[in-house]
């Protein structure tokens, strides 16, 4: 018997699965409003907005947030430039070792973050590079480049090569061709890749642990707070912010890349 509706058992199982994934996130939100600040007590003895004010006035939160935003923004910018260039080279030219380069670019995201972290840390040590904002940035850029590259290379492959020739044929130099033909055709892919890269960087813990000096990015700061309880709900307030900051770009990227499956330049 076939029916358009799934069986009751299947629907319950699906609902249970979704609840299992999302209920804990909801709990985080609830604890941001609790009046009790030593241990996570259920149910919360009372509800208050006090922790939002406390969080607002904590300089360490602002420092961590600011560092995370700067790292995410700059590593995304680096990734957009390098990822796009690399994708353009791999998708539209043939050269010796092209497949190898393609694989090597993707490797950092396939490797466990801990490997990337350890190897970067020992490399920085060997080269006598002090751990700083810039070492965090480099660590994040390794995987941000991959995300942008993956999005861009897929779009480049769907773009007909004769579009670029047509542009040059019509009098556009390399810069004009990039500005008026290539960029409009890969823009949504770059936006999606950039947002994903930003979100990945923003909540990255493992690589950051190995490449940071005294600085604390937001996720690292949260880990520290959990170990050393002091005004615990502040962590929950920050967690809410993190969820929103990472969720919104990913949602945006999803909507932007939807419905762009038509092949660019296949005008027959």
């Amino acid at each position: 018997m076939h029916s358009d509706r799934a069986s009751l058992g299947l629907r319950i199982a699906a609902a249970a699965g979704l609840l299992f994934m999302h209920l804990p996130i909801l709990l985080i939100f609830v604890y941001a409003f609790t009046t009790e600040d030593k241990s996570y007590q259920w149910p919360p003895p009372g509800l208050t907005l006090e922790w939002f004010a406390v969080t607002w006035n904590r300089p360490d939160v602002w420092e961590a947030l600011s560092l995370s935003l700067r790292v995410a923004a700059i590593s995304t910018a680096i990734a957009l430039v390098l990822g796009t260039l690399c994708a353009a080279a791999v998708a539209h030219t043939r050269f010796f070792g092209r497949e190898v380069i393609s694989l090597l670019v993707i490797l950092p995201i396939a490797l466990p973050g801990i490997i990337t972290g350890i190897s970067l840390r020992s490399a920085f040590n060997l080269a006598d590079i002090p751990f700083s904002f810039w070492t965090i940035l480099l660590g994040h850029a390794t995987f941000c480049v991959v995300v942008v590259y993956n999005n861009a290379v897929a779009r480049f492959r769907r773009m007909s090569g004769s579009l670029i020739e047509a542009s040059m044929d019509l009098g556009a130099n390399a810069f004009q061709t990039f500005r008026h033909v290539i960029l409009p055709n890969i823009a949504t892919a770059l936006l999606a890749g950039g947002m994903l890269a930003f979100a990945l960087s923003f909540d990255e813990v493992i690589v950051t642990t190995f490449t940071a000096g005294q600085q604390q990015t937001l996720p690292i700061w949260m880990l520290e707070e959990l170990v050393r309880p002091r005004q615990r709900p502040v962590t929950n307030v920050v967690a809410m912010v993190v969820v929103l900051v990472t969720f919104l770009p990913i949602l945006g990227a999803f909507y932007l890349t939807r419905g762009t499956d038509t092949v660019a330049g296949q005008g027959k």
Binding site: S160, S162, L163, E165, A166, S167, D169, L170, G171, A172, N173, Q176, H180, V181, P184, N185, T262, A264, G265, Q266, G267, K268
Partner: peptide
């Protein structure tokens, strides 16, 4: 010289007028 390509190579993100005006635009 200008070329009419075998697959036409029209710019998919531009409408017909902007496609035709591309050479004048650049």
């Amino acid at each position: 010289v200008n070329t009419v390509f075998q697959d036409y190579a029209l710019f998919p993100h531009l409408n017909v007028t902007d496609n035709v005006a591309f050479g004048l635009m650049v």
